[in-house]
């Protein structure tokens, strides 16, 4: 997949990725490029039809200067509004947004729910590591209760969001949750999400070895252990996070609906 990255430019080498050893965000990038590669080869999509946008955080670094695609590393929480703008200018673009749990559910929460409500044609890939990684490990809206972080040194008193439920209520038309320990399922879901004409949300539970002070391998092991596929059980299993495809429906997409207005009133 290195062909999809800018390994070096006129001012020198850009790789290795700036991320910590064993960071789940790096894996999400790898999975995404595998999905993109599949789509380019199977669907006849050109490389220049894709655009990647990120906000701020570890996940956002993926677009900082690594991608051999049109991309932008933008403002914390605002990637989805910016993606909306790109689609208003060129609805043919396939826009993929890398976001983190803080970026999409805290500062970007409002834009997240409206992007889903509008069913704008965007693929939202959320690297969810349950905290704010880039800034040193603070609590996030996705940090479970009781967890100690740098800003919850006595334990988190808040409950966490279920981002997939949030996406569902807001109106996203493809919703899935996997983990970095489920590469093939993640690639499959990302592929489906990019192909989806509408707001597609894929949450990937991801390890942050540094702030959790746990080795990447052990964290991946835990991700596998602490999750259960919704295919296996309809009930919530105590202490386990449900993963799988939660939603795959069809609803009119924003630019498609607006095009009817343009067609009718520009005559």
């Amino acid at each position: 997949m290195l062909k999809y990255l800018k390994e070096r430019g006129p001012s020198g080498a850009r790789l290795p990725l700036i991320l910590c050893p064993g960071c789940g965000a790096g894996q999400v990038l790898n999975y995404t490029l595998h999905a993109v590669d599949k789509i380019i080869h199977e669907d006849g999509i050109r490389k220049e039809d894709l655009a990647f946008i990120s906000g701020v955080g570890c996940s956002a670094r993926l677009t900082s200067h690594y991608l051999n695609f049109d991309s932008a590393w933008t403002l914390h929480g605002r990637a989805l509004a910016i993606a909306t703008g790109a689609l208003l200018a060129n609805p043919e673009l396939k826009v993929i947004v890398f976001t983190g749990d803080g970026d999409v559910a805290a500062i970007g929460g409002n834009h997240f729910i409206h992007a889903c409500r509008r069913n704008i044609n965007v693929t939202i890939l959320c690297v969810n590591n349950g905290l704010y990684g880039m800034t040193g490990g603070q609590v996030a809206p996705t940090t479970p209760a009781g967890i100690e972080t740098t800003t919850t040194p006595y334990g988190n008193v808040e409950a966490e969001f279920d981002l997939c439920k949030l996406a569902q209520t807001a109106g996203a038309t493809y919703i899935a949750r996997w983990t970095t320990a489920h590469p093939r399922q993640t690639i499959k879901s990302i592929t489906k999400a990019i192909r989806k004409k509408g707001a597609a949300f894929v949450e990937i539970l991801s390890q942050c070895p540094v702030h959790n002070k746990t080795s990447p391998v052990e964290m991946l092991h835990n991700l596998k252990k602490n999750t259960v596929s919704i295919k296996k059980t309809k009930q919530s299993e105590k202490g386990k996070i449900r993963i799988g495809e939660f939603c795959d429906i069809t609803r009119p997409e924003w630019t498609a609906k607006y095009q009817h207005i343009i067609d009718q009133y520009s005559r």
Binding site: L17, C23, G24, G26, Q27, L29, N30, Y31, H34, P183
Partner: peptide, 11 residues
């Protein structure tokens, strides 16, 4: 090639 897929650094 699962190793290639799961590598965070394309290494």
């Amino acid at each position: 090639k699962l190793c290639e897929i799961v590598c965070p650094d394309f290494a």
